[in-house]
Design a protein around this nucleic acid. Structure first.
Lengths: 207, 207
DNA sequence: GTCTATACCATGATAGAC
DNA sequence: GTCTATCATGGTATAGAC
């Protein structure tokens, strides 16, 4: 970590601008997806020339990667900030609720479900992978705790439960339900939580 | 319907070729997705020139639409062929199992989760929509029957259950589980069925 | 490091001969 | 209706001046 006072004004300006770029990318990625997002649009939204973009990020791919890394870091911070004395199952439900609420407000899902190229390039990005592994570890710990407490299915492997929670954060049902416009956002979140944890078959969960 | 004997040899040949085209598109769509599938590839896989492709289908969009319509018709046929005396919940589980097995063997999911453009263009295609509505009606009937039999959550709206089943057929968890390569296809299907109907929280279903 | 202008390429679509 | 050859568009990336 570089001490703050050692940052020149120019360096700070650079960081601010890069933050603005990532912010714009985050919004465009959520609205249009990776393929339909063009570098022209990014430049226009930030208010700089396209060539300047390439001074900050080497490619469209690395730009998207930076945005996804930022997203994972946000998620990590949120998970770490949860009260440790809260029951693990409630923490897990809370994390999914939080992710779904962000997505319904126009944010990105945790799992990159968008584009195969992007997915593969991210899987080769060590920065991204290391953060995803951190998050995986945290969540796996919660899953094991909740399962030990009898709150999760005893015979499902941890990785299946973990993947299921990730997958719910990018579930297309949310888009279609929103499109149908008969339930409000809060109800949609409750439906997703109910179907994810309770399942379709019953188990009288709160809904 | 045109009587078979009225079809000239040329007309039959045309139908065979179009079937071959749709077949190739089906495979490419499943392997690469809509965006990454190019018309050059389609032509190459069928073994005809690209320009010939455009004699059969006006655009890439209409080509994909034809493949998706074909897929829905397959699904409709499968659902209609189910024994009517089977309990509704078993029919629903069987449909999802069937869809997942096809997908694991390299087929397409029922729900077009691939591309926003494609999704929107399909929603404006009356042929596609009418078949989807037929399928929706069939499945909604099964869902209502299963719910009346106490086999499905009483407080979830039919459309939520319907969307959830569709969404499971294109769940990215399947890809990631397959990628991890620690469970075989059959196990993956069972996990998906367990998490879909039983949920993560327990409800001692078969797994 | 920012800009304008442009190279370069992939790809959807078409012309025109046979 | 099939082919070869070509066009047109749009989008990533870069050159070069300031």
């Amino acid at each position: 970590m570089i001490p703050v006072q050692k940052l020149t004004f120019k360096q700070q300006q650079l960081l601010v601008r890069e933050a603005a770029i990532i912010n714009a990318v985050h919004g465009l990625l959520a609205r249009k997806g990776y393929d339909l997002m063009t570098m022209d649009e990014v430049a226009a939204e930030v208010g700089i020339a396209k060539a300047s973009l390439y001074k900050h990020f080497a490619s469209k791919e690395s730009l998207a990667a930076a945005a996804m890394i930022h997203l994972i870091e946000n998620t990590l911070a949120h998970v770490r900030a949860l009260p440790p004395d809260m029951p693990a199952i409630d923490q897990l439900r809370g994390i999914l609720r939080w992710a779904l609420e962000i997505r319904l407000q126009g944010g990105l899902p945790m799992l990159p479900s968008d584009n195969k190229f992007l997915r593969e390039s991210l899987l080769e990005n060590p920065q991204y992978i290391s953060r995803v592994m951190d998050l995986n570890e945290l969540l796996a710990g919660l899953i094991e705790a909740a399962r030990a407490a009898g709150e999760l299915h005893q015979h499902l492997p941890v990785e299946v439960i973990l993947l299921t929670i990730y997958a719910r954060s990018c579930d297309p049902s949310v888009d279609y339900l929103k499109m149908m416009d008969v339930h409000d956002d809060e109800q949609i979140v409750e439906f997703m939580l109910a179907t994810c944890f309770g399942g379709l078959s019953g188990m009288p969960q709160s809904v």
